[in-house]
Design a protein around this nucleic acid. Structure first.
Lengths: 203, 203
DNA sequence: GTCTATAGCCAGATAGAC
DNA sequence: GTCTATCTGGCTATAGAC
């Protein structure tokens, strides 16, 4: 990778601060309720300056998604580096991380229906590439875990993949946290169990 | 119940048409993307007339939620009337209905973060009463199913209740439907299985 | 690239005639 | 209660000076 000039480094640090704010605000309020004014105020720069870095509100959201996907990929690689870990354990590790991120208020939440946002996302090659990379990595583990008998074969791998992805926006975490009765670790364990073990008793 | 005058019946029919439109638009676009103009156009009346029936956009959403909760309660009572049905089977029946409603595009979706919307909802006694009634009915079945050994006792009843409620906004249904590869019945069966049986193999 | 100031638009809500 | 027309505020995005 080419070394960056000092000026480029400053730029990158600033953009990183912007994406951090966007990420947190998206997790807190969702895309529609988040305003660009808030982002600017949170970062501590003028709104017009934001638009020098990112073309639109949608582009801000896309940048936040890219970052969280990069974090996910890093976690996947960490799991892959654990010696002797089974595919099932690796999937469980990644899923646990996803739940922890959401519970920590660091998982951006985007509306599935917003069409201009979708257009920006599917037009963002960086984002699409990351989604596909994550899907393929998880998909391989899923097939492997089905073959070694630890994941059910009653469901297509596709259904399992989507179900794992959906943990990123599972509302049960928020319900339980709102009750203020349980520790974060306990909440994560329970939701992970609902996902992997299901609600029906295992005899 | 007192008989309604003709004028009151007309009013009620009109409000029912409004709530139907709101319900469908909320399912289609979500609360933030739905506009009151759209609702008025869909019903075929002027926007100002809408505001004679409902005080705000939030009140429209609350009315839609009340209606879907009334439908849910009716389904619960139908399940309760099935002779010889176990608590587990009754819970599964209600959950299946929830998934079917969502897949049919009839489940209103509200943002969990919007504070003015939440304020309207918690201030709506009719809504709150229905939520509590549904929760209590399901809660009894959950405890019963845990006692008879069909539902896991590794999770508190509260966690199971929230997990069942969350099926009303499970994004996996939409993912699978978007793929256009599977029948609605197949999709419902799969998602119901992820919920009750989990992803891990059952030996 | 940063700022202040503002354009332009859109959506929720209302005025007032009928 | 229904309508047309309008108000009002807030939001995205940009102009233009520095």
């Amino acid at each position: 990778m080419a070394r960056l000039s000092f000026r480029e480094q400053v730029l990158r640090v600033r953009e990183d601060a912007i994406v951090s704010s966007v990420n947190r605000l998206l997790a807190e309020k969702g895309f529609d309720s988040m305003t660009v004014d808030e982002v600017a105020a949170d970062v501590g720069i003028a709104k017009a300056s934001l638009y020098k870095h990112f073309a639109s509100k949608e582009a801000l959201a896309a940048a936040a998604m890219v970052r969280v996907l990069q974090r996910a990929l890093k976690v996947i690689e960490e799991q892959a580096a654990i010696p002797g870990a089974s595919a099932f354990e690796q999937l469980r590790g990644v899923t646990r991380w996803t739940l922890q991120v959401q519970l920590a208020g660091e998982m951006p939440s985007l509306p599935a229906q917003n069409s201009t946002l979708r257009a920006t996302l599917v037009g963002d090659k960086h984002y699409i590439d990351l989604v596909m990379e994550v899907s393929e990595r998880l998909g391989q583990w899923i097939v492997q875990a089905q073959q070694d008998g630890s994941l059910t074969t009653a469901l297509p791998a596709e259904v399992i993949l989507y179900t794992l992805f959906a943990r990123a926006c599972d509302p049960v975490l928020g319900f339980l946290k709102a009750g203020n009765q349980h520790s974060d670790a306990q909440i994560v364990d329970w939701v992970l169990s609902t996902c992997l073990d299901g609600l029906a008793a295992r005899r």
